[in-house]
Amino acid sequence: MPKELQTQSSIAVSHSTNEMKGGGAKALRKKYRDPQHLHPVVNTIISVLLGILAVMCIFPFFYVIIISFTSEESIVRNGFQLVPKDWSIDAYHYLWGMKEQLFRSYGVTIFITIVGTIISVFMITFYAYAISRPQFKYRRFFTFLAFFTMLFSGGLVPTYIVVTQFLGLKNTIWALILPLAMNAFYIIIMRTFFLKSVSESILESARIDGASEWRIFFQIIFPLSLPGIATIALFSTLGYWNDWFTALLYIDEPNLVPLQSLLMKIEANLEFMRQNMDVAIMQSSLFNTIPQESAKMAMVVIATLPIAVSYPFFQKYFISGLTIGGVKE
C-alpha cells in the first residue's frame, strides 16, 4: 500500500488504537505522574469547561422541546419557562390537526434529501475524480470551470428563469433537487481528497491488469474514498434538509412544500399580518389558523428531531472524511 493511502485509512481507526493505548497506560499512570496525561485538577477543569460548552450547544434544543409542551396561557403569563407551571400537549394536538400537510411536507423533505444526495454525490465524485487525474488532458480547464462559479454567481432572477422557463421545472419536485445538486466548493474538496488519497501507482497496477477506468472507479476508488464521499453526502443531505429558499421561489403547490419551508411560511405569514393589519383584520377568518408560540416550537422540534437522532450515527464517517487536507506528511 502506498504511504499516503495508509495514513488516510489509518485515521479512521486511529481513534480506537489511541484509546487502546490510553487504556494500556492507565495502570501506569497511577504510580507515576506520567507527563502524557493531564494533572487531575487540570483534567477536571477542562472537563467542566468542555461540559459547559457541550451543554450550551444542545441546551436550546431541549429548551424548545420544553416550550412546545408548555400551555399557551402559561407562556403568555410567565414566558418561556425552564420548568413550566402548566404542561400541555395542545401544541402537538394542533400539529395533528394539520397532519395532512405535515406528513406531506415530511415526505417531500425526505424524498428530496435522499434523491438529491444520491444525484449530487454521483455528479460531484465523477467530476472531481476526473479533474484529479493527470491523464485527463483538459483537467485544468474543467477545474477552472467549476472553480469560477464559486466567485461569480448568476444572480437570483436569471437562475429563476433558467429553472422555470428553460427547464420548465416550476412546481415540480425537480425544482427542489436540481438547483442544489452541485456545488463547486464540494467539487474542489473532493478533488483535493482524490489527489491526496488515490495514488497513481495503485491505478497503474489495476490498468496493467486490464481493468477499465469505470471498473477502477467503482471497485477501487469508490471504496477507498468512502470517508470523503460520506462527507460530501452529509453536506448535501444537510443542504437539502435545511433548504427553504428554493421552495419559496419555485413552489406554489402546497403538496410540494418541504418542512423547513413550511416553517418559514408560517413566520412570513405572521410578518405579513403585522405589516398589513388592516387586511388581516378585515379578513380575519383567513388568519384564524395561525399557530401560537408553543405550536411553532413544536414544529421546530419535529423539523429538528430526525437530524438530532441520526447524526450521532454517521458522525464517525464524517470525522474521518474531514481529515482531507488535514493530515500531511
Binding site: I124, Y129, T149, S153, V162
Partner: peptide
C-alpha cells in the same frame, strides 16, 4: 465523467451569468 457536472454548471451557473 465530467459531462453531467458540466451540463449542470453551464445551466445553473454560467447561463445565469448573462
Amino acid at each position: 465523467m465530467v459531462l453531467p457536472g458540466t451540463i449542470w454548471l453551464l445551466l445553473f451557473s454560467y447561463l445565469p451569468m448573462f
